[in-house]
Each structure stands twice: as C-alpha cells, then as structure tokens.
Amino acid sequence: MGKNVSPPIKVLCYILIVFFLFIYLFPLFYIVNTSLKSSQDYLLYPTSLTTSPQFSNFVTAWKKANFGTYVWNSVLYTLVCTLASLFMSAAIAFPISRKYVPASRFLHFLFLCGLFLPSGMIPTFQLILGSGLYNTKIGYMLVMTGVNATSVFFFTGYFRDIPKDLDEAATIDGCGYLRYLVQMVIPLSKPAIISMGMLTMIGVWNDIVSSTIYLTSESNYNITRGMFVFQGQYSNDWTLTAAALLIVAAPLILVYLFGQKYIIDGVMTSAVKG
C-alpha cells in the first residue's frame, strides 16, 4: 500500500489490526489470568482480573500432571528427533547440492514425491507393531524423526551458496567427509539449520497424534500428551489446566521470542519451496 493513505482508511486499518489483536490475545490473556486464580475465585468470578495471583497453581499442576517425568521424555524426544532429522537431511542435501552422488536428480525427485504422497499412518503403525517397538521410546522417536522433504530442499539451496573451493581445501588438508560436513558445512549454514531445527523442535514438542497412537504407558508420555490427559482427568479444574497448558507452552513461547526471525524465515522458505 502506498504511503499516502487517507486518514479514514488508516483508522479503519488500525481498528482491524486491534480487533484481530484482541481475538488473538484475549484467549492467551484469559488462560494466563485463569492460571493465576484460586479455584474458588474462578468459580465465582471466572472472567474477573485476578487480584492475588496463585503461583502455587503451577506447582500443583506440575505435580498432579506428573510433568516431572514427561518433561524429560519430551526433552529427549525433541533433542534426539531434531538432531537426527537435521543430520539426516543435511547428509542427504549436501551431496545432492554438489552432485557428489550418482542420480542426484532422481534423489531430488524421490524426496519431492514425499510432499504429495498420502500419509502412511496405518502401515507405519503396522511396521512399529510388527517390530515390537510399539509403546517404546525408540519406536516413537523413529516415527517422529524424518527426512522432511522441505528441509532437504531448504538445505540444498543453502549448501549451494557454500563455495566449492572449501571442499577442495578440506580434501587437500586431509579432512574427512563426515568431519567436514559436521564441522564446516553445517556451521556455515547456521541460519538454515536453526530455522529447520526450530521448526522440527516445535513439531516434535507439540506432537499429539503420534504420541496418542504409539505411546500408551505413562512413563513414555511426552509432555503434550501428559497435558492432554491431565485436562481429560481434571476436565473442569480450569485453573490447573490453564497452568499446565502454560507450562507446556512456555518453552515454545521462549523459543519463539528469541528465534522468531528464524522460525518465520523457515516457514516462508519451506512454503515457497513446497
């Protein structure tokens, strides 16, 4: 839109922006407010501003929802799946971008297919069940890890920008391939790695579908599923549910606050590539 916008339109624009800000912020605000209320206060005045914040709700929710176990599971799943996914994608994208392997083009096509093929939820389940990995951490992580086609393309694009002279210099120095990949290529494409890493992390942390399908023991639950189950058990204790929800969302919000640029960059690029 041009710079010379007439005042009434400007006002209209501000009204729209503020209206949608309300729609987006009100639910979050409501959750924060609820999480700080005593349950008595909530039952009497559910929508009033809390006057004496009950931070103990968070402690109670943490204990009752058994987050002590789940949070470590989630950290484990998130770390392992993210690192594995990133490494696998990078290890595939780099040779493709350099045409170091035969049939690079075919590989490229193969991964492109992944974007359009139907999801294989049921055969995957049969696979995990058949291999005895059902309801195990390993099985779940195998499912949650993935060479995502978008990250392969994203990386391919970035790796092309790394001068090939570097490859040559590395071989002359006698630097091995794996070491070169891990110590040079990946650090050089930090923005891409961070973008994809954050998106993958968010995806794994938030997963509810796969954890519902594959994890049945409480000792294997991730925190998202733990929160979901907790909400089912204490379906009308909204003060505790809100607190539990914020505990689950807190790391996401932190990551978002600090890595917004990378996340949005990743979304833009992957969408355009896809």
């Binding site: 595939i92 939820m121 195998l142 060479v147």
Partner: peptide, 20 residues
C-alpha cells in the same frame, strides 16, 4: 552418511504411503 536418511525415508515415508 546418506544411508540412514534414505533408509528412514524409504521405510517410514515411501513404503507406508504405498502400502496404504
């Protein structure tokens, strides 16, 4: 180095997709 990724992709993406 490519192997884990390609294997995983074939086993957990392509194969299930066809088997559906």
């Amino acid at each position: 180095c490519m192997l884990p990724g390609v294997l995983h992709y074939c086993i957990f993406r392509l194969y299930p997709s066809m088997m559906t």
